[in-house]
């Protein structure tokens, strides 16, 4: 139901956009009357393609029952030059969904006297809490490293800078080991996701991509950047946003604990005492 509704909306959107575009082209096509006719007839350049995209939902609530959520990033290529029903042969689309950057500490264990303990650490100033890339084919096949770096597409190009003098004594290779460990650990928690074939084309200009947000995703705004590639270059990009926020009991408890820690602690104590006493009353009656 949801799926077909989304596709329907996308199709309408695309039709409407095309009509606007078509009327604009007609207006350009009629030349001003008092100019001399051009001597050399050049074929008119096709208008540049642009990409527009949106997310299936604008805001998501993280409640006590939150077990993750799937969002759909969908969009359309305007002025698609692709042959009918085959946008994939002509274009590539990359969708990057990124969470709020947070400072994190990465630690490395080593053996000290038979016991494994954290011996070195590094603080990264800002690491995206969540980072998902979905693309119509593996990103290495879409564009060269310089292009990917410029647009921060791909795990290798996530901006991750050591804070202050943190990690000052480390060699480049050690720094790289910490970096790749952060990415590996985030991937293991499903917070960094790579979907090399996660973007599907529909017809000559529509595309969609399903991105799974895991239950442990940190709350905050998510930014979905959609890139349209042709011949290894970005021809257009679009940004859409979705916000995750705490709701229900989850929100109440979390905010209370962090904003009024003393009152929260006091209530925790009261709850514990009351539930302990209640239990003893209940079971005494049963056994009596």
């Amino acid at each position: 139901m949801m799926r077909s509704a989304i596709i329907g909306v996308m199709a309408c959107l695309w039709l409407a956009l095309n009509m606007v575009q078509a009327s604009a082209q007609e207006a350009e096509a009629s030349p001003p009357p008092n100019l001399p006719p051009p001597t050399v007839v050049t074929p008119p350049l096709p208008p540049m393609e642009t990409v527009e995209a949106d997310i299936s939902t604008r805001s998501l609530e993280v409640t006590t029952g939150f077990t993750g959520h799937e969002i759909v990033v969908f969009g359309a290529i305007d002025n698609s030059q692709a042959p009918k029903d085959d946008a994939g042969s002509y274009y590539d689309v990359v969708v990057v969904v990124e969470g709020t950057p947070f400072p994190i500490v990465a630690r490395r264990k080593s053996e000290v006297g038979g016991v494994w303990m954290n011996t070195s650490s590094i603080t990264f100033n800002s690491v995206p809490s969540y980072y998902a890339i979905a693309s119509s084919k593996p990103i290495e096949e879409i564009a060269g490293p310089a292009v990917l770096e410029r647009h921060a597409i791909g795990f290798r190009h996530i901006k991750m800078m050591p804070a202050g003098n943190s990690g000052a004594g480390l060699k480049d290779s050690q720094l790289a080991a910490f970096r790749s460990a952060v990415i590996r650990l985030k991937q293991r928690k499903d917070l960094y996701v790579l979907e090399p074939e996660g973007v599907d084309f529909v017809g000559r200009s529509l595309f969609r991509s399903t991105i799974a947000l895991p239950a442990n995703i940190p709350v905050g705004p998510l930014v979905a950047r959609t890139y349209l590639f042709r011949d290894g270059e970005v021809v257009s990009a679009h940004i859409a946003r979705v916000t995750l926020h705490r709701a229900g009991i989850e929100r109440l408890v979390h905010n209370f604990a962090f904003v009024y820690p003393a009152s929260y602690g006091l209530i925790a104590v009261i709850i514990a005492v009351l539930s302990g006493l209640l239990a003893s009353v209940l079971f005494r009656r049963k056994t009596a």
Binding site: P103, I104, V105, A106, R107, R108, K109, G114, W116, A181
Partner: peptide, 20 residues
């Protein structure tokens, strides 16, 4: 758990109050 070589020697965590 303390003595056996861990499968993953790296760990990540949030920065806690003011850092080191």
């Amino acid at each position: 758990d303390l003595m056996v070589t861990p499968a993953e020697i790296f760990s990540i965590g949030p920065l806690i109050g003011g850092g080191l």
